[in-house]
């Protein structure tokens, strides 16, 4: 019965570690390239180099939450706990990446716009996402029954993810009425190599981390589902 939770051998953890390690390596390469070798941008100067880590983080954060959405649907349709552990993992990784995204965004905004937060629709939507999924993670910690926890967090994740485009458009609208600004985040074609390398780097790192985090969830679940040992 307990084996329904884990679909891979518990001992085989070399893959996620290797994948994550490869990801970190790529990140080092890509960041070094972006910091040392990519030419300076005309208007934004060296501050623009933040984009080489900011844009890849943004892509992967959204990917993590999209994967979480898929896991939630799979969890509701299939039942069992396989997809639930992946949901737990990808939500946590998504929150970590999105929080990082907001920090990067603030550090980028200060020299660019003079303020720490410029209500950029994408970044503001990310902030809402951090709060929404943190709330679902909190919900999980309050529910003891594993079956109920799986169903409820899947339902909540679906509801939260469907909201993402709505939040984005409402903030974009709301912001555009008060400020006329274009976000100069476009990276010209000459600079895209460090961007791609970092994007794949974070992708691999994220993949490894989600896999490991899912195994942590699975191990915990197995312990919870096992009947307590009879006193001899």
């Amino acid at each position: 019965m307990a084996t329904a939770v884990m679909d891979t051998k518990t001992s085989d953890t070399s893959t996620p570690y290797m994948v994550a390690g490869a990801g970190l390596l790529l990140l080092v390469v890509g960041s070094y390239w972006g910091l040392a070798y990519a030419p300076r941008e005309t208007y934004m100067g060296d501050v623009q180099r933040i984009m080489y880590v900011h844009v890849p983080t943004a892509w992967n954060a959204m990917l993590a939450f999209t994967f979480a959405f898929g896991c939630a649907i799979a969890s509701l349709i299939r039942g069992g706990y396989r997809w639930d552990t992946r949901l737990e993992a990808s939500m946590e990784v998504g929150v970590v990446l999105s929080t990082l995204l907001c920090i990067q965004g603030a550090i980028w905004a200060k020299p660019t716009w003079g303020v720490w937060w410029d209500w950029d629709p994408r970044l503001t939507t990310t902030a809402v996402l951090v709060l929404a999924f943190s709330g679902i993670i909190a919900l999980r910690s309050f529910v003891d029954d594993p079956g109920r926890r799986a169903v409820w967090s899947a339902v909540a994740a679906i509801i939260a993810y469907v909201d993402v485009p709505i939040v984005y458009f409402s903030v974009k609208w709301w912001n555009s009425l008060h400020q006329m600004q274009s976000t100069p985040e476009t990276v010209s074609k000459a600079f895209h190599w460090p961007l791609r390398i970092n994007a794949i780097g974070i992708l691999l790192l994220m993949w490894g981390l989600i896999a490991l985090r899912a195994r942590i969830a699975a191990l915990r679940l197995e312990r919870q589902l096992q009947p307590p040992p009879e006193a001899a």
């Binding site: 910091l35 990784v93 990082l100 790192l205």
Partner: peptide, 29 residues
């Protein structure tokens, strides 16, 4: 106009990214 310098922000962003990503990876491990 042009933004001069600003390297402290660049280091801040990359530093925060490194700390959070590596820190989280260590925590998972």
């Amino acid at each position: 106009g042009v933004i001069e310098g600003g390297w402290e922000f660049v280091w801040g962003a990359y530093g925060a990214s490194a700390v959070i990503l590596i820190g989280y990876a260590v925590s998972i491990h």
